[in-house]
Amino acid sequence: MISIVDDDEGCRMAAASLVRSLGWQATVFASAQEFLQSGLIDQTSCVISDIRMPGLSGIEMHDRLLALGYAIPIIFVTGFPTAALEAEIQARGAPPLFAKPVDAGIVEQLLNLLLDSR
Rank of each mutant, 00 (worst) to 15 (best):
V102H: 12
A15C: 05
I2T: 04
G69R: 14
F98R: 00
A87I: 13
D7W: 07
L111W: 08
L36I: 12
R20Q: 11
A32K: 02
E34R: 04
L114D: 09
G39C: 11
L110M: 09
D116A: 10
S117N: 14
Q90H: 14
L40F: 05
R52C: 03
P101A: 02
P54Y: 04
V102E: 11
S21R: 09
I51M: 05
L65D: 05
A32I: 03
G93E: 14
L68T: 08
G79A: 14
V5M: 06
E9Q: 09
A104N: 12
I89S: 10
A87S: 15
D6A: 05
Q33F: 03
R64G: 00
F76A: 13
E108A: 13
T27L: 03
A16L: 02
L68S: 13
V28G: 06
S17H: 01
E86I: 07
S45A: 15
S17V: 02
L40A: 04
R12V: 03
P95W: 05
A26L: 02
N112G: 10
L40S: 04
L97S: 07
Q90C: 13
F80C: 05
G10R: 02
A71S: 15
M1N: 09
D8M: 03
T82E: 11
L110H: 04
R92H: 13
Q43V: 12
L18A: 00
T27I: 02
F98W: 01
V28M: 09
L36P: 06
I89K: 06
A91G: 14
I59S: 07
I41A: 01
I4L: 03
L113I: 08
G55V: 09
D63N: 12
V19N: 00
S31W: 04
P73Y: 13
L113P: 01
L85N: 14
I59A: 08
Q25D: 14
D63T: 11
R64T: 11
V47S: 08
F35S: 05
Q90M: 14
Q90N: 13
R52G: 01
V102L: 15
H62P: 00
G58Y: 00
V19F: 01
K100F: 04
F80I: 02
M13F: 13
G105M: 09
W24T: 00
L65E: 06
T27Q: 03
A94I: 07
V107D: 02
L110A: 03
A94M: 08
N112Y: 02
S45N: 15
P96N: 09
S57Q: 12
C11N: 10
F76R: 09
A30E: 11
A16N: 01
R118W: 11
L68G: 07
A26Y: 01
I89R: 07
T82G: 10
E86S: 15
M13V: 14
P54M: 04
T82K: 09
D103E: 11
T78V: 05
I72F: 08
F98H: 01
L85D: 14
I41W: 02
N112P: 00
L66Q: 15
A94Q: 09
P96W: 03
E88G: 11
E9N: 05
T78A: 10
A83H: 03
S49Q: 11
I106Q: 13
A84L: 11
A83N: 03
I48K: 07
A26S: 02
L85P: 13
A84F: 04
G10T: 04
